[in-house]
Simulated assay, not measured.
Amino acid sequence: MRTYYIQSIVNKPETLIVFQGNTDRLVKCFVLNDNNDKFLQFSKLVGVAQRNLREKDLRMCDYLQGIVGIPIFSSRFMNEFSPILNNEVDFYPIEIQCNGIVEEFYLAKIKNYIDLIDYEKSGFRTLRDGSKILSHPRVINKSLDNFLIARDKENKSEWVVSEEFKNTADRTGLKMKFYETL
């Protein structure tokens, strides 16, 4: 199965979205899957665009890159994909602020955790203390079951989309880039 990473169509430095508030809580909820999303009932999610992301970029993009591994999708994306992703993703509205304007986007909480990475074929880097961490290239298992979007069970910050996801995004004209994983 072919798998892909997603990138924003804006290709310049300092265009990330910086989350306001407690990012540790967001990472625990959206990446580490601690199932504690009650805080979302009482707080508004807000992200601020870095200085090189312009208002026109924000209105054009259907995927934005955050400073942590949480996918950020546009309302257009939400309209197209929420019916087909309802078993794999929960969406939460986030207000993205950019040079005085506000646009609504959605954080995607990926619920699908599978063995994505082939650790035997992937590269590792040895730290000073002798421990090893995953480095590039990360090799994705090619014998995966069908899915649209998923996170790795072990290295939860890693997530990919399927060829079906990519083809649907391309067919509907959504503005995001895809590059194939190894």
Rank of each mutant, 00 (worst) to 15 (best):
V18M: 13
T15A: 10
F178T: 00
D118L: 02
L53T: 04
D118K: 02
D115F: 00
G47K: 14
I17A: 02
N33C: 11
I17V: 13
P83Y: 03
S8H: 08
D115V: 00
L107F: 06
T181R: 09
L64H: 03
L116N: 09
D170A: 07
L45M: 15
N79Q: 09
A108S: 15
N155D: 14
K156A: 06
L58N: 04
L58G: 04
K44V: 12
L107W: 01
Y113W: 06
L64Y: 01
T126G: 02
N35S: 13
V139G: 06
L40A: 01
N22T: 04
F147N: 03
T3G: 10
M78S: 06
S75K: 10
V160T: 05
E103R: 11
R151E: 11
R138N: 07
K121D: 07
N86C: 06
R59A: 15
I17Q: 04
R25E: 15
T3R: 06
V48T: 10
L45E: 06
V161Y: 08
R59M: 12
D170G: 00
F77W: 13
I70P: 00
R25V: 05
A49C: 14
Q7C: 10
T181I: 00
N167Y: 07
G173K: 06
T15N: 11
L134T: 07
K56I: 12
E14F: 13
Y5F: 12
I140R: 03
P71A: 07
K153A: 01
I114F: 09
V102Y: 05
K142H: 08
